[in-house]
Amino acid sequence: MARWQPDAPGRLAAAALDLFEERGYENTTVIEIAERAGLTKSTFFRYFPDKREVLFGRGAVTGLLVEGIASAPPAAGPLDAVADALDALGRTFFTADRREFSGRRQAVLNAHTELREREALKRIDLTDSLIEALHRRGVPGRTARVAAKLGMLVWEIAYDQWIDTDNSEGFGPLARQALAEVRAAGAER
């Protein structure tokens, strides 16, 4: 690949994923990732602080979720605002063309403790961002925490289904279905 081609972060993520699958996470270096992407080590570090971060994006998901909550209808309750944010994520990030990459990425994460730990920390940060976005909508503290944590549970359920190669349904509808199941479970006596 020529260095002038666009989407350096995407190219680096694709190269890293290929190398992590081929050689293992521990046996892959930043230099190898950059070379596979047709870029330099300094270009890698322009976008990512270390090789763990190359599979975690650069905050795009957080921005989409926060904007989705902010743009939810004013009358939407906390869980409905979170559902709107997950819908937005499905329309713009968890799209059909990213499904195969996302499934492969998850397999690599599942195979490496260090990456699973990083993913857990990222989810905590995402939950905190959801809480803050709900606070900005005027949702009280405890309610915002519950809605954000339930939203992340819904995300995990929907994401696991969405990356399944036997599934063809979009992330948004899967998230709505998972939210309905969470609500039903909460209504049981």
Rank of each mutant, 00 (worst) to 15 (best):
T92Q: 01
S71Y: 01
A107Q: 10
A76C: 01
G90S: 10
A81L: 04
A75V: 01
E117V: 11
L115D: 15
R104T: 04
L115V: 06
F101G: 03
T95R: 12
E100R: 11
A96N: 06
D80Q: 01
F93R: 15
A70I: 10
L109A: 15
D84R: 11
R116T: 05
I124D: 14
G59D: 08
E67S: 04
R98E: 12
L89K: 01
A60H: 14
D97E: 11
F94M: 09
G90H: 11
A72C: 07
G68A: 03
T62I: 11
A88S: 14
A111C: 10
A70Q: 13
A111F: 09
D84Y: 02
G63D: 07
A83I: 00
L115A: 10
H112M: 05
V61P: 01
A72S: 13
P74K: 03
L65W: 03
R105Q: 12
L79P: 00
P73E: 02
A107G: 09
L115S: 08
A72N: 02
L126E: 15
S102L: 12
R91V: 04
E119V: 13
A72R: 02
E117S: 14
D84N: 10
R91H: 13
E117H: 14
T95D: 00
E100P: 08
A120I: 13
T92P: 00
L89I: 03
V82N: 14
A83M: 05
V61G: 04
A88E: 14
R116G: 05
T95S: 01
Q106H: 10
A85P: 09
V61I: 12
N110W: 12
N110Y: 10
T62N: 09
L86C: 07
D87R: 13
T113P: 14
R118V: 03
A83P: 04
L79G: 00
G77K: 00
R98L: 12
R99A: 05
A83D: 10
E114C: 10
A72I: 05
L115F: 09
I124H: 15
R58D: 07
L65G: 08
R116E: 09
A107Y: 08
